[in-house]
Design a protein around this nucleic acid. Sequence first.
DNA 1: TGATTTACCGACCGATCGGGCGGTTAATGG
DNA 2: CCATTAACCGCCCGATCGGTCGGTAAATCA
Lengths: 180, 180
Amino acid sequence: MLAAAVRLFNTRGYDATSMFDVAESLGITKSTLYHHVSGKEQLLTMAVDRALDGLFEAAEAAVRDEGAATVRLKDLIRRSVLVLADRLEFVTLLLRVRGNTAAEQHALARRREFDRIVTDLVKQAQAEGGVRADVDPATAARLLFGMVNSLIEWYRPDRGAPESIAGTVADLAFDGLRHR
Amino acid sequence: MLAAAVRLFNTRGYDATSMFDVAESLGITKSTLYHHVSGKEQLLTMAVDRALDGLFEAAEAAVRDEGAATVRLKDLIRRSVLVLADRLEFVTLLLRVRGNTAAEQHALARRREFDRIVTDLVKQAQAEGGVRADVDPATAARLLFGMVNSLIEWYRPDRGAPESIAGTVADLAFDGLRHR
DNA sequence: TGATTTACCGACCGATCGGGCGGTTAATGG
DNA sequence: CCATTAACCGCCCGATCGGTCGGTAAATCA
């Protein structure tokens, strides 16, 4: 039910999708839908939480693990790609939230917290000499996850195994496009 | 007037923004607004066209210029970042279009055409040995512009000169994050 | 100056939205 | 077997939406 709603939210947009649309796609009436969920916003909240929980699991592992920050940063990129691929539709919805309601602003706050963790990790990796120090850590973190998050725009399960894509992204992020 | 509408579309979302909101932000009534524009969709069309025109100028320059494809690809990245920074709000709106109406689908088609140009350029750069050949050109193009397009999420005019950001992005894309 | 055009407004319309209410059928458990 | 509960539905509501219409004030031009 949540999956059906999220799919519609992503294709038509959250505001452009009516609760009637959601109910219809499930073969039930709007009344029945409201018997199971408390409202439209609850569907959104459940979806973005599922996305954020996945991302924070990856982030906490990157913070918790031992070893060089540079390695943990690369692992975080890989793990994030896997989460994106696995929970593609939930993350897609998350990344489109604009912060109009209290629930959406809560999601934005959690996203900023995630960004902070990545930025810190970049800073540590720079300090230990694994990452070039001539770029602002916050900018690097944003560009890095700009690349990762772009998966929601083009990744399809039939377009290669998630592990393969994750490797490509992490590799490109660290070694760049240039031929060596 | 277009600028005011686009600003609202970006902060509240296109569907969540009413024509009353747009009129109010201009200090006029909805009727007056309709005296100047034919409808809500026209505002969207004008905005995304301004974004697409800028991007295609950059793409056509990259195709037209002489010299190595590798250099032209890097130039295209730089130029695209400059367009993003210059027309930030228009591009922001463009990148959020979902394709619900005919006008939006036309915008999506132009975006795909842009992607095709980038992919071709990556392919050429690989053929001449300037770009590593172990990544799928389409994937590389998408990740590259995932990074570039992420600017709409975080770039603010006071956050460094556009030329500086453009250099950082192009540099990171080609040489990666790793310390050398 | 008089006529025409341009900018502007208030009031209104049909459609659609999120959500609620009262009641009915189907499953479940003692 | 009967009572309780869960799943389901038709119908309705107030609010809001994009857009229209008839008319007025201000600017423009002959």
